[in-house]
Amino acid sequence: MTVRVLVVDDQDLFRGGFAMILSAQADMTVVGEAADGVEAVEKAEALNPDVVVMDIRMPRSDGVTATAAICARTTAKVLVLTMFDTDEYVYAALHAGASGFLLKDARRDELVQAVRVVAAGDALLSPAVTRRLIAGLTEPGRPRPELANRLGCLTDRELDTLRELARGQSNAEIARALTVSEHTVKTHVSTVLSKLALRDRVQAVVFAYEAGLVIPGRDHS
């Protein structure tokens, strides 16, 4: 399957470079480019990309606002690329519906792999920000009651799966930790997302911390 990609960045150099790298992949096609958030939303609706590679700081409409609109109006997954390794931007983008976050200084192979991961329905955060981001923005010992109450719809094994997922574990690592098959893990993850009405694994990680299922500083491996 060929992944259809829309590249969004207000800087021509970055936008052209990303487009060139992704277009060179046999399994990817860059269907369009946009220079700001407004254009990004328009082209996402018109071109039906699988993945939108999204900058954060742009004129007219920023990447967070554009991400929220694209996730609400289309089936495209959003991979946020930025030079700003600051928690506020990452957290805002995740809450807007982004499925991945990668710094612009990532290697080209990391960018390509990130697009593939997001296109496949998984989620990706830069290792530099993953648990530090979520843990740092969640008050230790102060879960949100309305979210904690929703955990009651999960079985014990589904809770275990969500807990491991929130610790940054891959399906293979979760399977080893719970002594089950990877297929079973995928089933549990899918069920957790469905029961909690979450878009993807990134939102599940955020939910687990905010609901108090995983305690910052205590559950890091």
Rank of each mutant, 00 (worst) to 15 (best):
M28D: 05
L178H: 02
A166K: 07
V41Y: 11
A26F: 07
R60Q: 13
R218H: 08
R15T: 01
D27I: 11
R107W: 05
D160F: 04
D160G: 13
T179F: 11
L6W: 03
T184L: 14
L198F: 05
R144N: 04
A35K: 10
A177Q: 09
H220F: 14
A119R: 04
R157D: 14
L165A: 09
P145F: 10
Q113C: 01
S126V: 01
P216N: 15
V80C: 07
A197V: 08
T187F: 02
C153A: 14
P143S: 13
Q11P: 00
D200H: 10
A40V: 10
T130S: 13
R73T: 05
V52D: 05
E158A: 03
G136D: 12
S190K: 12
Y209M: 13
D36L: 08
N48C: 06
E182V: 08
A96K: 12
I215M: 11
A40M: 10
K186L: 15
E39M: 13
V214R: 03
V90E: 14
A98T: 03
L81A: 05
R199A: 12
D10S: 06
R167S: 09
G141F: 09
G100E: 09
T155W: 05
I215D: 13
T155H: 04
P127C: 13
M54C: 07
T187E: 14
P127I: 12
R116L: 10
R116W: 13
Q11N: 08
L94C: 03
I21C: 00
V80P: 00
L193D: 01
D160L: 15
S194M: 12
I134V: 14
D122E: 15
P140K: 09
L13I: 15
R144P: 00
R131Y: 07
Y91A: 12
A211W: 06
A166Y: 05
I174K: 04
Q113P: 00
A172F: 09
D12I: 14
A128H: 07
A120K: 02
G32K: 02
S194K: 13
E210H: 01
Q169V: 04
V30I: 03
G17E: 11
G121F: 05
L159S: 04
F101M: 03
E182N: 06
T138I: 09
